[in-house]
Design a protein around this nucleic acid. Sequence first.
DNA 1: CGAGTGACCGCAA
DNA 2: ATTGCGGCCACTC
Length: 104
Amino acid sequence: MPVDKNFKDSIYELMAQLPSDKVTTYGDLAAWAGYPRAARIVGGICHYGPTELPWHRVVNRLGDVARGFPGGPEVQIQLLAGDGIECQDWKVSDFEARRWRFVL
DNA sequence: CGAGTGACCGCAA
DNA sequence: ATTGCGGCCACTC
């Protein structure tokens, strides 16, 4: 039974494997989950899903922090800095270099 | 149960 | 380069 899990469930699994010193994007998570076009719901999952997962390590395709994040982008940047990830101008420094990848 | 919303992405003009 | 539009799935009203 391949992927009997729902889209949301798959996202959680991916997030659980996301290293603390790396970041990822909504579109990538969606694509790895099996829905490359469902990046929107990924952000929705962040909003409705539990905050136990490191959602702050997830940014948009441009490496920019989320726009609707509670409190503002400063909060997300602060959280990223707490994990050892530096940011600049509301964007992750060396975002592509820190971008998490499944297949290398 | 139906309709609307949402922390996005990709393409077209 | 910027703006506009559609599409995807899950959650709320």
